[in-house]
């Protein structure tokens, strides 16, 4: 029981572990909605734009908490701009995502190269480093997940309506566009909060796999939510323990554990359906 010893003796492992589980809960709740609203592009777009925010805040020498809020601010603006372009243009949305994603990331890297010159730091943000998570990050993540879960669960029937039948929701006078911006904001908070754990590149797995797993296994929305959340938390715990036991990168390990369980889940459902 090496892991439990570590958890008790090393505060940074404790905070890293707790932060990951709380984030898993947050992503578990929002993940089915990301997929059913057909917005699987949003998490990567936001996470890549975060690099610009991080570089800018490091440039002005911000403290850890300031880095979070500054990055959140910049990424929110970019996510809103993206939503605006997608809402008000007749061009396919993936064009904008492709362009935004590249440009924001490029400017982030350029700022880093020209002004900061610390390539090692960049690597942490790309793939995540659980050792960087502090008590502050833990508290911020807790608040972020609390806000996002309450926003999703308290307006649950609205989210279902807008995801399933956006046109009728609009015709019934529900402010569909406002909900879209709220959704982008919630997702931005979650993505920014998770960057130290999963990194910019791996956050997609955490945001999409639990929802896909649940949607493949059930049709009922409440069951979907329960499956998605438990899958997300369980795989995070397994991934975290595996990573810390074999000294691997946590975000990478969690992503792979999720993928393996996704494949096992879907194929066993197919097998059960075939032979039972």
């Amino acid at each position: 029981m090496n892991f439990i010893n570590d958890l008790i003796n090393f505060p940074f492992i404790f905070y890293g572990f707790m932060t990951s589980i709380i984030l898993a809960l947050g992503f578990g709740i929002i993940s089915p909605f990301i997929i059913s609203k057909e917005q699987s592009f949003l998490p990567p777009a936001i996470s890549h734009s975060a690099l610009l925010g991080i570089s800018l805040s490091l440039l002005i020498g911000a403290t850890q908490t300031e880095v979070f809020f500054l990055t959140l601010l910049i990424s929110t603006i970019i996510a809103f701009l993206l939503s605006y372009f997608i809402n008000n243009n007749k061009l396919p949305p993936d064009v904008f995502i492709g362009i935004f994603l590249t440009i924001t990331m490029a400017s982030g890297i350029l700022i880093n190269e020209v002004f900061l010159n610390n390539q090692a730091n960049l690597f942490h943000f790309l793939f995540g480093n659980i050792l960087l998570i502090s008590k502050q990050d833990y508290l911020i993540t807790f608040t972020v997940v609390l806000i996002s879960s309450v926003s999703i669960l308290s307006l649950f029937k609205y989210w279902i309506f807008i995801s399933y039948d956006p046109q009728s929701a609009k015709n019934q006078g529900i402010p569909v566009k406002l909900f879209q911006y709220l959704f982008s904001f919630i997702l931005t908070m979650l993505v920014i909060a998770s960057i130290k754990m999963t990194g910019i590149i791996l956050v997609n797995a955490l945001a999409l796999i639990p929802g896909l797993f649940a949607l493949k296994l059930s049709k009922n929305i409440k069951t979907i939510l329960i499956y998605s959340t438990s899958f997300s938390i369980l795989t995070t715990i397994i991934g975290f323990i595996t990573a810390s036991t074999f000294n691997l990168t946590t975000g990478v390990t969690i992503a792979l554990v999720q993928f393996i369980l996704l494949v096992i889940g879907i194929s066993s459902k197919k097998l059960i359906g075939k032979y039972l």
Binding site: S36, K157, Y164, Q172, G173, L215
Partner: peptide
């Protein structure tokens, strides 16, 4: 409306569907 589209990634029963009319 004349044109309708639904995102049927999750299921809704007919009862749940009709109840959505009350929202808002």
């Amino acid at each position: 409306p004349q044109e309708k589209y639904f995102n049927t990634y999750f299921g809704l029963s007919v009862l749940e569907f009709i109840k959505m009319g009350q929202i808002g």
